[in-house]
Design a protein around this nucleic acid. Sequence first.
RNA 1: CGGAGUAUAGCGCAGCCUGGUAGCGCACCUGCUUCGGGAGCAGGGGGUCGAGUGUUCGAAUCACUCUACUCCGACCA
Length: 449
Amino acid sequence: MRLSRYFLPVLKESPKEAEIVSHKLMLRAGMIKQQAAGSYSWLPLGYRVLEKVKKIIEQEQDRSGAVELLMPTLQSADLWRESGRYDAYGEEMLRVKDRHKRDMLYGPTNEEMITDIFRTYVKSYRDLPLNLYHIQWKFRDEVRPRFGTMRSREFLMKDAYSFDLDKDGATQAFYRMFVAYLRTFHRMGLVGIPMRADSGPIGGDMSYEFHVLADTGESAVFLHADLVNKPIPPIDTDFRSDLSAIFKDWTSLYAATDEMLDEAKFKTDVPEDKRLSARGIEVGHIFYFGTKYSDPMKATVTGPDGKEITVHGGSYGIGPSRLVPAVIEASHDDAGIVWPVPVAPFEVTLINLKAGDADTDAACEKLYAELGNAGLDALYDDRDAPAGQKFATADLIGIPYQIILGPRGLKEGQAEIKHRKTGERETLPLADAVERVRSLVEPQRRDKV
RNA sequence: CGGAGUAUAGCGCAGCCUGGUAGCGCACCUGCUUCGGGAGCAGGGGGUCGAGUGUUCGAAUCACUCUACUCCGACCA
């Protein structure tokens, strides 16, 4: 992408409505624009990050055996009357009427709709297990949206819904999502820790929240320090096998948010030097809900013995539009965002220090083409602007690597590479620059772990 | 929904108390000079001062009503 032809409205000062660092940086980096309380446009740079986050989620959902589809945002109230939630859901649900005065709603979630799809088509136990998911915009009319896209009213959500014959089957489905989530957050360059959550009226231990550790997180979390660097289940994990050992392994180490904290247990289960108090941002939630929807909505299949079986379900959410600020909260410095490679809008930016100078332009054009040929996501800053401005922009928008080229270096046949995260700079022959960046970027993509 | 604020150019702000027809920085446009960490000089464009009503000879400024947005709290992917 050539910056001169791109749309990147960066701001020197952050608009006053922004309170937390991720919100400020997303506004300053030209990633989002607020349109109303809790409602945002995703500008090109922000949209690229959101798409990368989505892609990783899709890859890991697919790997786990879940199947993607897409359901509408507007739903008929009738479905929600069936489950009883039309009246149970409060003001948070945005209710609208269509031209025929029919009651509609902007979906805050999709359990009813997916259950309707399931009961229409799935009739036999042989079709189970099944896990269907989609990534769609939701709306919850929060009393008080805040922190930018961290807590917006309209938000993007990946929600998966599993269907199984019985609780044992549903438990396996739960484990598959558990493992998929561990992998998903790791792949984004985050530390995502599963924490026992309140499972409400269902009870049991089948409700986990995943929290990203970040100093500015909204909730206090307490965990065993070994969880932070615990290796995730690898890419060749067999999702058709029994994953209970992985689940037990991870959940044997204590981790809880302040709401669920059992201080006595924290102290007895975790040695003192391993007790970690930190802050976390909730980015995912998985839980088993049994027959809560299948029962009233009559989602049943015929069993081997010819009898009708009410299916057991679970649902599994991840908030991509929240993950973007969560990554920023976990990774930034005074100069701006520091993107982990897997979700960076561009992996490398080429900075032409003297746009308009024929030799420098020619050398940059060549480099830019080579970056593309090497399979790198590259942003070429070809603007006619002072060097300082280009450096500041590159740092602000957080591209992991900067290749800096000006007449001075060009005369020596040298280019400079700056590592955004460490600030480290290296000077190397122009001809080696692309390969050097490629070798730095590739292992950090985490697409083969 | 309770409490507290804010609203003046794209962004950040001053002006309001003490009414006299709007200003600063950044951004934007033109020209020249610059060019390795958000450039310099000169010139220029852009605002029914959130909306409505009222008081007044005169309202960004005073009064009332409304709307939007933000913050703290209770609530949430």
